[in-house]
């Protein structure tokens, strides 16, 4: 099943993914990225592309 992998070393909590796919990504109160099920695949692909640090990856 397709899922999203976050490189925690690289993520800088820019929140661009949350703008692209708010149903899947959320920066919590500490600024740590929480990732849910990649329900809307098109939006998640957009988030992976838009991530400014390339911290997101879609894997099968």
């Amino acid at each position: 099943m397709t899922r999203v992998v976050v490189d925690r070393e690289v993520c800088m909590s820019a929140g661009v993914c949350e703008m692209e796919a708010p149903a899947v990504f959320e920066l919590d109160a500490d600024g740590v990225l929480q990732v849910g099920e990649p329900t809307d695949l098109a939006a998640v692909e957009g988030a992976v592309r838009a991530c400014p640090t390339g911290a997101l990856q879609l894997v099968d």
Partner: peptide
Amino acid sequence: RRIVAKAFTPR
């Protein structure tokens, strides 16, 4: 950056 990012999240 990670610390201040908290204040600028979309939510």
